[in-house]
Amino acid sequence: MSFSSSSPSSSPSASPSASPASAAGSAAHPLAPYGWDEAWAAAFAPHLDRGLVPGRVVRVDRGQCDVVTAGGLVRVDTEFVTPNDPLRVICTGDWAVVDAGGDPRYVREYLPRRTAFVRSTSSKRSEGQILAANVDFAIIAVSLAVELDLGRIERFLALAWESGAQPLVVLTKADLVPDATGLGYLVQDVETAAPGVQVLPVSATDGDGLDVLGALVSGGTSVLLGQSGAGKSTLANALLGEDVLTVQAARDVDGKGRHTTTTRNLLVLPGGGVLIDTPGLRGVGLFDAGSGVGQVFAEIEELARDCRFLDCAHVAEPGCAVLAALDSGELPERRLESYRKLLRENQRIVAKTDARVRSELRKEWKRRGAEGRAAMEAKRGTRAWR
């Protein structure tokens, strides 16, 4: 999708006469399709007297970002929101406080985030990189054109749970699986690696599963994640109902593709909700995701409560309930090895970073995420009774 700088009145879908003050909490507000609600209006209220306007960041690009406001799409400078902390830089999905009357226009700050999807960068400094902000659903796209990598799925899920968003695993290219029985087995395999998460096979070619997926994400903001070649752009185009994003063929040998998406773009879905498309992720490093790992491996954490020793490492200790479950066949060895691997990786990251500060940030994101989802559910309930 091509975003270009424009004046506030140039967008055909904008309503120049609507003001944030008069319509901030109304469902008729021009930003409602982008996720604006009464909670965001209340958070923005202190800025109204300063003549600033709210807007949602739809793309960030080299010191500037595209922000959709009540008056349309504007290109603004990010000079005032470029701190040294990489987790506090402005990001696609943020709600910005915009000085739209100046020349150049500036983002003065952004509203406190409800959730944030963060991964570890490949740098030796073990920094975090924020991929998307204020996300309700984390859609993890997994291609069925290649052999399933359950460990990678568990890694994505740990980051998704840690972000405060609700994960959803979408198995793309389901039309390439020759029979329904085989597809059922693949779904079951992924479900064992994703307890408490819906697993949905879809085919953008045949349209199978797209109506269910569209309904699931229609009530909030979703971020689309996965490796290059997982079919994310094809899936996004199917949800959008048009070919907005460029699609390239994956290699037959390994199912991988080139990065057809190079920036993170926020797009409005015709059936409701918004979608943040992201470039393919080759590296998915954990970043202070201890609680996320625990949620992915909830059955192991539950077993560990019955271990004889509180600090049991589940290696060779007597009275270890986890090892007993392994011996009985109740717990697959692959799950335990994956759990150990992600725990070790996360512990190394935490040891190199200020875990306390990161933990406080995440607690705040999760609290706000819970509030946002509660408001969304209440809104859905109100609509159902009308």
Rank of each mutant, 00 (worst) to 15 (best):
Q198L: 14
Q248W: 09
V202M: 07
E191V: 13
G283A: 11
G292W: 11
L240C: 13
G272F: 01
L240W: 14
D175W: 13
V199R: 11
P201H: 14
T260D: 08
V212I: 11
V293G: 00
V212D: 15
G241D: 10
L266D: 04
G271A: 06
G241C: 10
A238D: 10
L183G: 05
D211W: 13
G283E: 15
A250S: 08
T234I: 08
V197M: 13
A236K: 10
T205E: 14
G164F: 00
T172L: 01
E162L: 03
W161G: 00
Q295I: 07
A289G: 02
D288T: 02
V268S: 15
L176D: 08
G285Y: 14
G272H: 06
A298I: 15
W161S: 00
L224K: 01
L200C: 14
G182H: 02
D243A: 14
L213H: 02
T260V: 06
N237H: 06
K173P: 00
G207V: 08
N237F: 09
V247Q: 02
G184F: 02
R258S: 12
D211R: 13
I300L: 13
W161I: 05
T172K: 00
E299M: 13
G182Q: 01
T205I: 13
D288I: 01
E299G: 05
